[in-house]
Design a protein around this nucleic acid. Structure first.
Lengths: 338, 338
DNA sequence: CTGAAAGCGCTAACAC
DNA sequence: GTGTTAGCGCTTTCAG
């Protein structure tokens, strides 16, 4: 492999000049630049990442911690990942992928200066990783919200507002008894940030809108979804509005309703909280609150990069939920009243 | 951050001694080792990855190129990824994730010595990345098979054998007219390695077993699956055996058959080629040829690590397919004959 | 606008 | 069993 000295020699300049044409950190005359660039080209020169990291304290790599926990929806995770990876490239950064949720990986990559910054997904209310990244010398942003986001940078859909919005939508359409078919029990047991926030918004708005809301955890399997639907309708047969916050279960929930001869969009209004493509891929186009996963991934990178060079303070950004009416929701029993 | 010199000073030894207790590359007396370890502990010392890479020409990072192309099944991809990442950790390596299928990423990470080795997924028959990695100084292994695997290390399920096995199974059960519901058209258009190999095996065995085989590309959407099934049965109404090689479409294929009052496991035998968990998650447990994605990811890492330190030659490893009979296949029209 | 030179923090001969 | 030392290839002052 050619080194910077080889290039310098070939171009008849010093190594520092080569370095500067590469970094653009000082003006270079046109002819010099041309000679250097030609030499680089000719030798197929690539700066050595390690040497660069050592000299500049910059690796041009960010860590992405995407724990693949049981109960998470893999395609949605990958939408976040895609957003992060593509946006990172825009900043000339690569992505080191950590999938284990243990804490040693964090130590290794931060302490060893393997990365310039971190993005962490799947945050739990009281996440053991949070104090660690807060103490790291690298900036980080969390996708999700810990119990106490003080001093941290976070970004996510505003799930609490999404919960409110979903209930408000159903209530306004005349549904007095609504229900949530939510995340798998494992996800709830871990106090995963997004699940809890959605439920909080849901309950608050139910109180405010004077509707009842029943909450049902839901495994993502066909049988899990069937059970959730059956339990729900046994306990609250008057339910006319369902909010589904579980991408994996969504198709099976719809199947079960169909099996029970409940027509979605007529007998039952269903609002999904999920990525747009998931909402559109169901048997009927779903009224949904979009989870812009790829966007969120992108924003996470923007934020972490801003903190990396500017002296931007930490901030938490909650994206406002947007509800799009499609064919799965309709006016309910009380429509036209009052 | 503490450096190796800080540790050396604190332990009253030289820096090289610290280096050697860390690497184990030469014997250290018990008391010295103890002092060094205590100093490391006390100072929270972590070797600087860049410095290490520079001095040792080893990064302890491998690149994983997992292009997220249209038509690929994301959860299956993630099974490969999981296998690679977890196995890499066993070798004390981290994983740099490249998702773009362009070729510049390869250049960057190999030329810049960012990684010790590469694993590449989703290989196409005539893949432009292949000549590049073949020329790189780092060893690489492909998950999948290019046109000409000469001199490369490859690992995959033996899809050609899988195709043969599936047909042989159906033929032996007395099915004379079988069909493939295959990958999405985009995947075929790219001449993706696994799709083509399965089809080759299929056709060869059909000839050998004297059964007819019809091939239908299949979009992974519900409508795509319905269309494929309908087209298939219109063109070849006598079909009694279907091989499905498309995880995303599988549930929809089964739904469509159900809609048409075709009872899988009685009127129609279906053999799936997919990961075990996918086969078991269907409406009935599927007779399937297992795609051991996570295993393959692990083996890929084993192979690349073997090439990294030993002087193992390149090899291609095709895992023998295993068919497990479950409830979706049964004897066909000609059963008991001959 | 360009060059010289001092490190960045670690590894691995080479000594003893 | 341990220490000394010469780099690894780059960035970035400091000079001019």
């Amino acid at each position: 492999m050619a080194t910077i000295d080889d290039v310098a020699k070939a171009a008849g300049v010093s190594a520092s000049t080569v370095s500067y044409v590469l970094s653009g950190k000082r003006p270079i005359s046109a002819p010099t630049r041309a000679r250097v660039e030609r030499a680089i080209e000719k030798l197929g020169y690539r700066p050595h990442a390690g040497a660069r990291a050592l000299a500049s304290a910059r690796t041009n790599v960010i860590a992405l911690m995407a724990p693949l926990r049981v109960g998470v929806n893999v395609p949605v995770i990958m939408q976040f990942v895609t957003g992060v990876v593509t946006r990172a490239r825009d900043f000339d950064h690569d992505v080191l992928l950590l999938t284990q949720d243990d804490v040693s990986g964090l130590d290794r990559v931060t302490g060893g200066s393997m990365v310039d910054a971190l993005v962490m997904m799947d945050i739990e209310a009281d996440d053991p990783r949070v104090p660690l990244v807060a103490a790291a010398k690298q900036p980080s942003v969390l996708i999700g919200l810990p119990e106490d986001p003080e001093g941290l940078s976070c970004v996510d859909l505003d799930f609490e507002a999404a919960g409110r919005l979903a209930v408000r939508h159903l209530a306004a359409a005349g549904h007095a008894d609504v229900a949530l078919v939510g995340s798998p029990p494992e996800v709830l047991r871990r106090h995963t940030s997004y699940a809890e926030r959605l439920m909080r918004g849901l309950r608050n708005q139910a109180r405010a809108s004077d509707v009842t809301v029943r909450v049902e955890a839901c495994d993502s399997s066909p049988s899990g979804a069937s059970e959730a639907v059956d339990t729900l309708l046994a306990a609250a047969p008057g339910t006319t509005g369902i909010i589904v916050h579980n991408e994996g279960a969504l198709p099976h929930v719809l199947s079960r309703l169909a099996e029970r001869d409940i027509v979605v969009g007529e007998d039952m209004s269903v609002v999904a909280v999920c990525p747009r493509d998931v909402a559109l891929a169901q048997r009927i186009p779903m009224t949904s609150i979009d989870l812009p996963a790829e966007d969120i991934g992108r924003v996470a990178v923007d934020m972490v990069m801003a903190r990396l060079d500017g002296e931007h303070p930490s901030e938490t950004r909650l994206l406002a939920p947007v509800l799009t009416e499609r064919e799965s929701s309709a006016p309910g029993p009380a429509a036209g009243d009052g």
